[in-house]
């Protein structure tokens, strides 16, 4: 029992992980086929897991409706939305267009789903403004640096700012375009690369911890 619960999953993780790692250095067709096979398996596992997810969604929202939980009315929309998309999809065989005519599924996608997604994405613009406002409240030295860099960037993107820069600091010979270019290509890139190097090394070590069974919290403890 202990073998099945502890050692077998660890051995599987190790073998599959090492083979995937080796496939990066082995270009042979067998290696390519192995990676493709693993991708297919991942898709199959995902398909079954998706059914579990759907079940979890329905059970969770059905429970809310049954118990009249706060905001239970929203849960009704989960079912309504689901059937509004699924029934036309079944009727049109999953096609959005048939003989040049938009099907019910196509209509729902174009005029409901896409519109709602675009709306959510557009909301981001408002949040960026409120976040920018919060960032500009200078509370520390780092916040001051952030403010100065952001202020210069904003200034350089509007004609009025460019004119103001030219009239006040034009004598220095440094146009605002050059300053922005320097900020974006030197300190910003340096910071970004520092983070990326740390991430890359951290990812390698995390992968090694999982492959060699050092990190096995996902399995629980005995």
């Amino acid at each position: 029992m202990k073998f099945i619960k502890n050692y077998l999953p660890l051995a599987m993780v190790m073998v599959v992980g090492l083979l995937m790692l080796a496939s990066y250095y082995i270009p042979h067709k067998h290696s390519v086929d192995y990676v493709e096979l693993m991708n297919k398996w991942e898709n199959i596992v995902f398909a079954f897991a998706f059914l579990l997810g759907l079940l979890s969604l329905f059970v969770s929202h059905y429970g809310k409706i049954r118990r009249r939980h706060d905001g239970w009315g929203y849960s009704i929309f989960v079912f309504v939305g689901f059937f509004i998309m699924v029934i036309p999809a079944l009727m049109s065989g999953g096609k959005q267009m048939i003989d040049g005519q938009v099907t019910g599924l196509g209509w729902s996608f174009r005029y409901v789903y896409n519109a709602l997604s675009a709306t959510m994405f557009a909301v981001l613009a408002f949040y960026i403004v409120s976040t920018a406002y919060r960032s500009f409240r200078i509370k520390s030295g780092q916040a001051l640096v952030l403010f100065i860099a952001a202020f210069i960037l904003i200034l350089g993107k509007v004609p009025l700012g460019q004119m103001a820069w030219e009239s006040v600091l034009g004598w220095t010979g440094y146009g605002i375009d050059r300053v922005i270019e320097w900020i974006m290509s030197v300190p910003a890139v340096a910071g970004k690369r520092g983070i990326m190097i740390g991430i890359a090394i951290g990812a390698i070590v995390t992968a090694l911890k999982i492959i060699f069974g050092i990190e096995r919290q996902y399995m629980g403890k005995d």
């Binding site: 990066y24 250095y25 082995i26 270009p27 042979h28 067709k29 067998h30």
Partner: peptide, 8 residues
Amino acid sequence: GNWFRLDR
């Protein structure tokens, strides 16, 4: 098909 990416 080759068995090792010497370039890597």
